[in-house]
């Protein structure tokens, strides 16, 4: 069984800045638990000779030359922003400290 508890869900919601009601927390505890359990099945079939990997195709060292390319204009950059001051994105007041 997974170790997803209502406390875990509340903590995750807090980190992700998503407000959840107690009902939603309860529902998600079950759902997320089921998802984690499903994923855990992978480790049941994995044998020690299969190396853990984060990528399906074994490629390394894919680089780019250090040459400047095209940039967005300020107008393009801000085109999808709900709020801006003409040159910068505007976001609601941030509670807490900078990272």
């Amino acid at each position: 069984m997974s170790e997803i508890t209502p406390e875990t869900i509340a903590h995750l919601a807090n980190l992700a800045r998503i407000a959840l009601t107690p009902d939603e927390i309860e529902k998600l505890t079950g759902e997320l638990g089921a998802i984690v359990d499903s994923v855990a099945k992978v480790s049941e079939v994995a044998t020690p000779d299969v190396v853990a990997t984060s990528h399906p195709i074994r490629l390394v060292n894919v680089f780019r030359d250090d040459v400047p390319g095209e940039t967005l204009t300020t107008a393009q950059a801000l085109a999808g922003a709900p709020e801006h001051d003409g040159s910068r994105f505007q976001v609601s007041a941030i509670l807490g400290e900078e990272q």
């Binding site: 709020e83 910068r88 505007q90 976001v91 609601s92 007041a93 941030i94």
Partner: peptide, 10 residues
């Protein structure tokens, strides 16, 4: 940061 109404991002 305390008491700010909004923030602008560059």
């Amino acid at each position: 940061i305390q008491g700010a109404e909004y923030s602008l991002v560059d």
